[in-house]
């Protein structure tokens, strides 16, 4: 079955009525419990290396996309677990965000199945496009409450030929200031870890200049993500070292306990209500899921 046929079949499964939820590999929370469950089409439709684009079903495992792109010396900026659709629906970026940017900037075009059971296209296939409203960014992070992702065209990037993690006891903000475009700067209150990619001579030069020591792996990340303004990360100096790993310059703090619920202002709550009412008036897609409440 072609991807387009599979999308048609997927839309028919979602249908126009009744509560329905979606799952991929269940690595990012899984479906709403007790509701009819559907799965998005999977499979890579094409890779265009000179365009730096890939088209695949939303149900395609990130690992499959990564392996296929590796053959062309490319990759996507999506953490390598679960499915592409799951990663986009949740919208969390990986630890390379400091230099590689957020997941939301990866999507060029997507199709989703709407609450009416119709296939809707958003965005366009080219690497640059400002034609119409940006429904792609609306869908990324919307956790399947506005539509179920069917297929996507993603922007790829060159896979680094040389990449190295380093550690240091130096202040992470000093490293952030003196290194040129580090891929990641992590800090646990005592130790800093830095990921660099690029030309090997430049890596050596940067590492020597900043007294970095090569290490095999980055630290293990505690399971919960806290999202804070990067300027407030200095407050972590008052917390016991080793209880967190912070993404310096980004504002994600990985902790062992969940983040407190967000406290959105009434205007934001109202906008969310109106958007969901427009896209899913019956509240049938992932029923009961409140995107403002999940962390």
């Amino acid at each position: 079955m072609s991807l387009d046929d599979a999308i048609g079949a997927f839309a028919a499964q979602v249908g126009p009525n009744g509560p329905v939820t979606i799952t991929g590999l269940g690595t990012r929370g899984g479906p709403v419990v007790g509701v009819r469950t559907v799965r998005a089409p999977s499979g890579i439709e094409w890779i265009q290396p000179a365009e730096m684009t890939i088209r695949c079903g939303a149900g395609t495992p990130v690992a499959d996309v990564d392996a296929a792109l590796a053959e062309h010396g490319q990759c996507v900026v999506i953490a390598d677990f679960g499915t592409i659709g799951g990663a986009l629906a949740v919208g969390h970026s990986d630890v390379r965000r400091l230099s590689w940017g957020p997941v939301r900037d990866t999507v060029l075009q997507l199709r989703y199945v709407s609450a009416a059971g119709e296939v809707v296209k958003a965005g366009g296939p080219t690497v640059k496009n400002v034609s119409g409203f940006d429904l792609c960014r609306l869908m990324v992070g919307s956790r399947g409450t506005l539509g179920f992702l069917a297929d996507v065209i993603l922007r790829t990037r060159p896979r680094p030929t040389h990449e190295q993690w380093y550690s240091s006891r130096r202040d992470p903000w000093a490293l952030l200031g003196e290194l040129y475009r580090p891929t990641s700067v992590l800090w646990d209150g005592t130790t800093s870890w830095v990921l660099l990619d690029g030309h090997p001579d430049d890596l050596r030069g940067q590492a020597a200049g900043s007294e970095l020591v090569a290490v095999d792996t980055p630290p293990d990340l505690p399971p919960h993500r806290w999202s804070v303004a990067p300027s407030t990360l200095t407050e972590l100096r008052d917390e016991p070292a080793g209880t967190f790993v912070a993404e310096i310059g980004v504002g994600i703090v990985h902790r062992s306990r969940p983040a407190p619920p967000a406290e959105p202002d009434p205007e934001t709550v109202e906008l969310h209500r109106r958007i969901r009412d427009e896209f899913d008036p019956a509240g049938r897609l992932n029923p009961g899921l409140d995107v403002l409440a999940v962390t």
């Binding site: 919208g91 970026s93 992070g141 506005l146 993404e247 980004v250 504002g251 994600i252 995107v291 999940v294």
Partner: peptide
């Protein structure tokens, strides 16, 4: 903050 709650 990098990942505000809710829609983008």
């Amino acid at each position: 903050e990098p990942e505000p709650a809710g829609y983008d």
